[in-house]
Each structure stands twice: as structure tokens, then as C-alpha cells.
Design a protein around this nucleic acid. Structure first.
Length: 918
RNA sequence: UGUCCGAUAGCUCAGUUGGUCAGAGCGCCGCUCUUACAAAGCGGAGGUCGUCGGUUCGAAUCCGACUCGGGCUACCA
């Protein structure tokens, strides 16, 4: 083995071998376990959030596979309608052509080409991360089978009256020319104005003042509303307004919606361009006048002067006109929530169009019930609240998109605009008995991407066919995802799963946090703080990193700033950490919080951890050869490390079950580094390297070394698959274990038999002894290598026996030259003291140690103990405590107090003696 | 608007049902190149657990109020 761990040499080779062996495919007949990957955008790349999520899923998958389950981690990608179409359109623009120039058919062909071209990138990245997905089952939302599922679901919902088509007000993206669902619209505060317009009364006597943030919509006003109880205006209800510019008469109506306290208490009503006004318009049967085009320019319903004018230009023009007419009452600065499309960034317009909708309420009911009843459990639990909040106020889902890339809506129209819904045109003709002479044209629109994603838990398993995979893996075990798509995806999978599979799609929903940069900022291209997971695995030089971060920016002017920040943070680029270090970092960061700051310091530390493990293995392999026969005798240290391994195993299992990978990682880290490496390996050295040790004991130590390491590798494997496999390949034969890969070995189990209690107590005693000596060395500046004489005072029979039996360990690990025992009345030379229970471990000063320094040290220790003691005395002196607390707690407290007192006694004795001598 | 989350060592964060819970890693300060590992070893310093109340024998932990930070959600034109 190399002296240092070199991930790049190992990882790819190992992954290829796993894949060749078919280890990722479900096998065996154990408990079914299934995770569906949240399908990433097929044309995208994996970012840190994906890598984090994939690490969690892979760890869970590997864990359950090692538990003996029949395990499927289902991979796949999403066609991501809008996002992909935008990317390809941008590409076409650079080629000097466009979507419309190509036409629908050629454009879609072009997107497929692009998909093929970039499709491998995701799977390559997943492979580098070590993701053990079942590649043979890889799916894409636009695959034939999945598309069939989409059609089936659409037709079924339509036939059940849960999908309908209608002219409604939708969120219209005037740049992308498509409708969007509510979820795809992001509102944020922006600076704007509130314009107050005077609307003259038709009677010619005065005017009402209305306020608006979007003056151009006044051309579509069809009423002015006041509150029915508003005494200022009540008498005007039923009268009319002369709508300026538009030159129409509109009524004054009364509606509860109006807040008399706000503004003037008069509201202009534009049913075709505002969601609230739309509702009012319907209540009062008002006309709906659409004044915009698809591009959000003013349409032909507007007066000549404004036609074709962009909405924002029209806004200015209309304000100017009001001013000219003397009807502009005032203008205020105002903060407005501006709705923008999450993809295009364009300001969204409420817009009247024909769209397809899902009537979600009937679907939502059982979906709510599934979580309420506990058939689906959110982890952490509080996310169910978020889910309920949305589900209880759920709105109909607009599923049609005016795009070309996606699942085309399976609806056909004849020349009279009759709608026929079916699996295909032929199917529609058959069902409705339409002659060939009847011309049918298919609906131009495609479905919202989330419509197909919502079917993912069963469409990937072959539905609507009845497949063995469906029997095995539906419902899935757990969904691992971020809270940002609970509404988009999780809720819809639950609704559609229950509807079409008659069962929930998964039993648990593990919601993890979102990866942010070291300052807690969201990682985004425009902030220039994006980290590519592969750059952390392979390393990257500064120039490449700068290139990645500063090219292709939407706002190129940010480049210098990004470059400066990047140079500052990564003056030498990013070093290579390897996939295991990255994965361990993700696991360790997987706390219950919702923001996860990715700190390079952590990955650095876990790379060291990989190296630590690597070197521990080197040590073990250097000292343990082929499996041997002969008597085996286990030392106290052997028993001790086994019990510690059992403890760690229990912890790791527990934390995995609780989805606390952070705690699992911490437990296994602690065991590996601070118990196995720091102590057991050191304790093994005297046994293996000294003369006069029995062959049986040596065999016991060798067997424990190899056995513990082998189990440790399995314990670590779900989180760090590569380095554990690499080492295991060498360790397993020596440990007498057969098997082609660690992947398919059983996960460690805690031993049922408790270790001999005296053995573990012995080692704890030895540890405290050595720690005491080390502390004296450290604090008294005695060189670590310098041997010291040790005198025991107040030693019991047990102490003496332990000192004798473990003399070798004390000598080698503590650099103890000799141990002598002093009778109770014998006088000790001036010495520094460490306490092991009642035992005083003395290191004679012998010119090494300054007496006054030691006195100070003792006083400090005493002071600490005195504080502890008085706290303890306070508790025990309180009758309420003694009477009310559980006896166990009281007993424990009494023992603590006694312990403090004994230690204080020993320390003060020692101090007194030292003072006399000095 | 409603709602949720967070505030613990210089930094990033653990702390499960209230009672060894005041912790880890990194950083910092000493001392060591001891043949697995200097990507290491050994030792050390550092915190009124956001504030104020309450419940309790006992609160970082439970309850209430508040301050600050953040998320989601709604919205008055």
C-alpha cells in the first residue's frame, strides 16, 4: 500500500468493477427497500445540492443492501420542459436561428439531440460520487413507457372529471409565452409607485379617486368598487363612471372585498388582469376586457394611440395622459410585490387564456389523510405542517404549457372546436366514432413537467403495466428531498400515487437542508460562489475555476468581482479531496437544520480521516499475515476494543434508522480515530513488538486487529464506499472472509455477549493512568520521549495487580521506566501527581519538575473540584431534591459527591506532603 | 398576514424522553519527526447555552413574552 491515501487512483477502478459485478441491481429476497432518485434535469449538471442528496440516498441504499435487503435505488432524469427548451433556444440563437424558424418538429428533434449529447453528464457525475443506482433501470420522463403513463393518467383524470379545460386567468409569462402554475411564480418586493387617478362620475358631478400600481390596466376596467357599508360612497352605488381614455361607461358596484380603510376606499376593477378583480368580476357578472397581447403589449381593444405599445411604455403614456387631463390626483412611492417567472425572470401578467386544469381538491383529501394518519411520515416531523398548510389551501393546478418540449396534451379538436381526449388520435376516433373525413388537430400545448414527475414512483417501475418491479418496490421506502419542492413534487406524487396505485408512494419523506456557501449564501452562478462537486473530488486549478465561474454569466459585469472573491478564497485552486472525503463531509453536515454551510475546512479534515483509516490499515496489514491456526488468547485490550466496536455499531445503526447521518458519521469517526487508532493500535504494539509475549496472545491481538478493522470497514462503507472497498479487498482474505465485494457483506451487528467486565475496566484504568502521566508531561514540560519513574501511593490490591499485569503497556505507551509501590506510611519524594480513582500516581520531580509549578497545578485542580463539590452539596442539601428526584438520580449524585471528596482528599494530602518537603 | 426555523467556544455545528450536557471538528497556544499516519502524536486555553419571566427539587432542554436573523405563505387596489 502507498504511504498516503490517493483517491484518484482508486475510485474509478472500483466503481467500474462494482458495475461489472452487477452489485447495484436489486437481488436476493430480503426486505424490499426502494428509493426513487429525484430526477435531475437531463441537460443539467449535478450541483452541490444534488451531490449532498445523492450521498444521503446512497448511504441509505448501501446500508439497507448490507442489511440484506432487496434494494432498488431507481435512477433517472427529467425532461424539465421550460428549462431545457430555454437552453436549446439560447443555443439556437447563437447559431443565428430560432425555434420558430425551425418549426415544431425540427425543434423537438433538436432538443432530443441536445439531450443525447448532454445526457451522459449526469450519470458520469453520479458514478464519480459512487452512487449505487440500478443503471439497468435508468429512466427518462419522456421515455416511451413513462409517456404512456402520462397519457393514461391524463385520460383517466379527464374521464373522471378531474381534468377540465377552461378560459381562466392564469400567470402568463410574456417572454416565454406560456402559462405558469402558481408555484412557478416568485414574488418579491420591488420599488414602484401608486398612482391615484380621478375617475369622473357620469353624472358630471365630481369624481372618485382610485389608486393603481399598474395604470395601463385601466383600459380594461369594467367597474369601480366600494365597500357596501361605506357611507361616503354608498349613495353612488349603481351610478356610473366615465372611464377616461377608454371612453367607456362603467358601473360603481359594492363588494365586501374592498377595504374602506385603504387609500380612498375606491378600487378600479380589471377582471381580465388581476386575480382579485377576476373574482369580483365573476361575482358581479362584469365584462372581462383583455387589453394585452401574448407579448404583454397593448392589444386592439385599446384606443388606437396605445395599440402595440409595450405595457411599460403604455404605463408612462397613460399616466402622462391623466396628467394632461388634470385627472392625476397624486403619485406615491410604493413598494410592490412584483411576480416574476422563476425561469425567465419576466414580470408575470394575469392573462385570460384557455388552459387545462386539474381539479385537485378531490385528490388532496386522501393525500392529507395519508399524512395525518401517519401512513406517510415526514422527517423531521415539522415539515408535515408546511405540507398541510399548502394542501388545505390548494388551488386548481394549471397543467398546460405553451411549449414544444414536453408531453403533448392528448386532446384533439374538430373544426367545431369539440374536444376529444384519448390515448391517441386513432383511439379518439374509435371511441367517438369519428369518420376519417373529420379533420382532427391535436392540442398544441404540452404538460407541466411536474405532471410527469408526479408519476415517477410508479411510472419508473413500469406502470401502467403490471410488473414485478411494481410489486417489489411500490410503495417506496423513503423519499429524500429538499423542502423547496414539497409542493411541486412531494404533494403531487402523494396525490397521484394514491389515486392510481391505491397506496401512498413512499412511507417516509426525509427532508434535508439546502447546501449553501461558507457564508450561508445560496450558491448561484450569478453570485459566482458555485462549487462543482467534481472539482472537490478531483481538484481544480485556479484558472479553470475562474473560467467556470466567470463565463456564461447573465450579467457579465459581475465577472471582475467574482474573480476577485474567487482568487481570495482559492489562491491555489481547490485541491483534490476524493469522493469519500466529500461524501463523509456531506454526511457529517446532514443535521436537521435547513441551511447547511459548506465549509472547506470540514472536507479537509475528512480527507485526513480517509488518510487515517488508510494508514491504520497499513499498520494492520504490516503486522497481520495469512490466517493462522493455533491457540488464541485475547488480551484485555482485545476485549475492550471489541466492546467499543459494539458500542459504535449500535450507535451507527441507531442513527441510520433515525436519518441522522451526521451523528452516525460522528460516532464512527470517534471510534475510528480516537479509540481504534489512538488506543487500540498503540496498545497492540507492545504485544506484537516486545519479547516474551505468548504466541496465543499475539494471535489474539492479530486476530482482533484484522477483525476489528474488517468490521470497521463495513461500518464505514455506506458513507465511504471507495476507500473501504479498496482496503477490504486486502483485509478480507486475511480475516478469513470470502466475498467479491464489501458492498454485499452484512452490516456489522453489535455482539450479544458482553465483554468480560474486568478486561474493559483494566483498559479504562490503563488509559487513565497513561493520560495522567501525559498530562503531567504536557503541563510540566517534560519531554514526551523522556522515560519517567512512577511511584504509586494508596494502591489497592487491584491497582497493584493491574500495574503489574499491564506494566508493558504503561512502559510503552506512557514511557514509564519503572513502577514502584509505596506503603501507606512510607514517605514519597517530591513528585507531581495524577489521580486514578483513589490511587495517587506520582512522578518524582528529580530535578525535572518545579515544585512550585506542581503546587500551582494541584491548587488549580483542587479549585475545580471544590466548585463541583459545592454544587453537588447544594443539591444534596436540598430536601426537595432528595425527596422528589428519582432515587437513582439521588444515589448517583451521592456517588459523585463522594468521588469529589475522595479526590480532594488525595490532592490535599499530596499538596501537604509536597509543601513539607519543599 | 399567517406560519415555521434558528440564536451554545474565535468559526461551523451536535446536545435523543428535563438529572455526568456544557461537547465535537476546525482554528489558536505549547511540546514532540516515537518505524501506520507531520494529512501525525501529546498536552492546554476558550462558553452567564440570545434576553426576561414562568413551570420544576432541578432547565441549554418544557411554557410564555421579547430581541435579532432567516425561510415559506398571503396581501390593500
Amino acid at each position: 500500500m502507498d504511504k498516503a491515501y490517493e483517491p484518484s487512483e482508486i475510485e474509478q477502478r472500483i466503481y467500474e468493477r462494482w458495475e461489472a459485478l452487477g452489485c447495484f441491481e436489486p437481488s436476493g429476497d430480503g426486505p424490499r427497500y426502494c428509493i426513487m432518485i429525484p430526477p435531475p434535469n437531463v441537460t443539467g449538471t449535478l450541483h452541490m445540492g444534488h451531490a449532498f442528496q445523492d450521498t444521503i440516498m446512497d448511504a441509505l441504499t448501501r446500508y439497507h443492501r448490507m442489511l440484506g435487503g432487496r434494494v432498488l435505488w431507481q435512477p433517472g432524469t427529467d425532461h424539465a420542459g421550460i428549462a431545457t427548451q430555454m437552453v436549446v433556444e439560447r443555443l439556437l440563437a447563437t447559431e443565428g436561428t430560432s425555434r420558430t424558424e425551425l418549426g415544431r418538429e425540427r425543434f423537438v428533434e433538436r432538443v432530443w439531440q441536445w439531450k443525447e449529447q448532454s445526457g451522459d453528464r449526469i450519470s458520469r457525475q453520479l458514478r464519480r460520487l459512487g452512487a449505487s443506482v440500478a443503471w439497468s433501470r435508468d429512466r427518462f420522463t419522456m421515455d416511451e413507457g413513462l409517456s404512456e403513463a402520462v397519457t393514461r393518467v391524463f385520460v383517466s383524470l379527464y374521464e373522471d372529471g378531474l381534468i377540465y379545460r377552461g378560459k381562466r386567468l392564469v400567470n402568463w409569462d410574456p417572454v416565454l409565452h406560456t402559462a405558469l402554475s402558481d408555484l412557478e411564480v416568485l414574488s418579491a418586493d420591488e420599488d414602484g409607485h401608486l398612482w391615484h387617478f380621478r375617475y369622473p362620475l357620469a353624472s358630471g358631478e365630481g369624481y372618485l379617486v382610485v389608486a393603481t400600481t399598474r395604470p395601463e390596466t385601466m383600459l380594461g376596467d369594467t367597474a369601480v368598487a366600494v365597500h357596501p357599508d361605506d357611507t361616503r360612497y354608498r349613495h353612488l352605488v349603481g351610478e356610473e363612471i366615465d372611464l377616461p381614455i377608454a371612453g367607456r361607461r362603467i358601473p360603481i358596484i359594492a363588494d365586501d372585498y374592498v377595504d374602506p380603510e385603504f387609500g380612498t376606499g375606491c378600487v378600479k376593477i380589471t377582471p381580465a388582469h388581476d386575480f382579485n378583480d377576476y373574482d369580483i368580476g365573476k361575482r358581479h357578472d362584469l365584462p372581462m376586457i383583455n387589453v394585452l397581447t401574448d407579448d404583454a403589449a397593448m392589444n386592439d381593444a385599446c384606443p388606437e394611440a396605445y395599440r402595440g405599445m409595450d405595457r411599460f411604455a403604455a404605463r408612462k403614456a397613460i399616466v402622462a395622459e391623466f396628467e394632461r387631463l388634470g385627472l392625476l390626483d397624486k403619485v406615491e412611492d410604493y413598494t410592490v410585490k412584483i411576480p416574476r417567472g422563476d425561469r425567465s425572470g419576466a414580470v408575470i401578467e394575469p392573462y385570460l387564456t384557455d388552459q387545462w386544469y386539474v381539479d385537485v381538491e378531490p385528490l388532496a383529501k386522501p393525500a392529507i389523510e395519508a399524512v395525518e394518519s401517519g401512513r406517510i411520515r415526514f422527517v423531521p416531523e415539522n415539515w408535515s405542517k408546511t405540507y398541510f398548510d399548502w394542501m388545505h389551501n390548494i388551488q386548481d393546478w394549471c397543467i398546460s404549457r405553451q411549449l414544444w418540449w414536453g408531453h403533448r396534451i392528448p386532446a384533439w379538436y374538430d373544426d367545431n372546436d369539440n374536444v376529444y381526449v384519448g390515448a391517441s388520435e386513432a383511439d379518439v376516433r374509435r371511441k367517438h366514432g369519428l369518420a376519417e373525413t373529420v379533420v382532427l388537430r391535436q392540442d398544441d400545448d404540452v404538460l407541466d413537467t411536474w405532471f410527469s414527475s408526479g408519476l415517477w414512483p410508479f411510472s419508473t417501475l413500469g406502470w401502467p403495466k403490471k410488473t414485478a418491479a411494481l410489486d417489489d418496490f411500490y410503495p417506496g421506502s423513503v423519499l429524500v428531498t429538499g423542502f423547496d419542492i414539497i409542493f411541486f413534487w412531494v404533494a403531487r406524487m402523494i396525490m397521484l400515487g394514491i389515486r392510481f396505485m391505491d397506496d401512498v408512494p413512499f412511507r417516509e419523506v426525509y427532508i434535508h437542508g439546502l447546501i449553501r456557501d461558507q457564508d450561508g449564501q445560496k450558491m448561484s452562478k450569478s453570485k459566482g460562489n458555485v462549487l462543482d462537486p467534481l472539482d472537490l473530488i478531483d481538484g481544480v486549478d485556479l484558472d479553470t475555476l475562474l473560467g467556470k465561474r466567470t463565463t456564461g454569466l447573465m450579467q457579465p459585469q459581475l465577472a471582475p468581482k467574482i474573480e476577485k472573491a474567487t482568487r481570495q478564497q482559492f489562491p491555489d485552486g481547490i485541491e483534490q479531496y476524493g469522493a469519500d472525503a466529500l461524501r463523509f463531509t456531506f454526511a457529517a453536515l446532514a443535521t436537521t437544520g435547513r441551511d447547511i454551510r459548506f465549509d472547506l475546512g470540514r472536507i479537509e479534515g475528512y480527507k485526513n480521516f480517509c488518510n487515517k483509516l488508510w494508514n491504520a490499515a497499513r499498520y494492520v496489514l504490516m503486522n497481520v499475515g495469512e490466517p493462522e491456526t493455533g491457540d488464541v488468547e485475547y488480551s484485555a485490550a482485545d476485549h475492550w476494543i471489541r466492546s467499543r466496536l459494539d458500542h459504535a455499531t449500535g450507535q451507527v445503526r441507531h442513527h441510520f434508522e433515525q436519518y441522522r447521518l451526521d451523528l452516525a458519521a460522528q460516532a464512527v469517526y470517534e471510534f475510528t480515530w480516537h479509540e481504534f487508532c489512538d488506543w487500540y493500535l498503540e496498545l497492540s504494539k507492545p504485544v506484537l513488538q516486545s519479547d516474551g509475549i505468548s504466541a496465543g496472545i499475539r494471535r489474539g491481538t492479530r486476530r482482533t486487529l484484522i477483525g476489528t478493522l474488517e468490521a470497521l470497514l463495513r461500518l464505514l462503507h455506506p458513507i465511504m464506499p471507495f476507500v473501504t472497498e479498496e482496503i477490504w479487498q486486502q483485509v478480507a482474505p486475511i480475516a478469513g472472509i470470502e466475498g467479491e465485494t464489501i458492498m454485499l457483506q452484512p452490516f456489522p451487528e453489535a455482539s450479544a455477549a458482553p465483554p468480560p467486565p474486568d478486561a474493559t475496566a483494566d483498559i479504562e484504568w490503563v488509559r487513565r493512568f497513561i493520560l495522567g502521566i501525559r498530562q503531567i508531561r504536557g503541563e510540566m514540560d517534560v519531554s514526551p520521549g523522556k522515560p519517567v519513574r512512577v511511584i504509586l501511593k494508596g494502591a489497592t490490591e487491584v491497582d497493584r495487580s493491574r500495574a503489574e499485569r499491564h506494566a508493558l503497556l504503561l512502559e510503552k505507551l506512557g514511557r514509564v521506566a519503572s513502577v514502584t509501590t509505596l506503603g501507606n506510611d512510607e514517605e514519597a519524594p517530591p513528585a507531581a501527581t495524577a489521580l486514578v480513582d483513589d490511587l495517587r500516581v506520582l512522578v518524582p520531580l528529580e530535578g525535572l519538575i518545579d515544585v512550585s509549578a506542581e503546587l500551582k497545578r494541584l491548587e488549580k485542580q483542587e479549585a475545580k473540584l471544590v466548585a463541583e463539590r459545592s454544587k453537588s452539596e447544594g443539591k444534596l442539601g436540598n430536601a426537595n431534591f432528595v425527596n422528589n428526584a428519582p432515587t437513582q438520580v439521588v444515589t448517583q449524585e451521592r456517588e459523585r459527591l463522594a468521588e469529589f471528596e475522595r479526590r480532594l482528599q488525595r490532592l490535599s494530602e499530596q499538596r501537604a506532603e509536597l509543601e513539607t518537603l519543599a
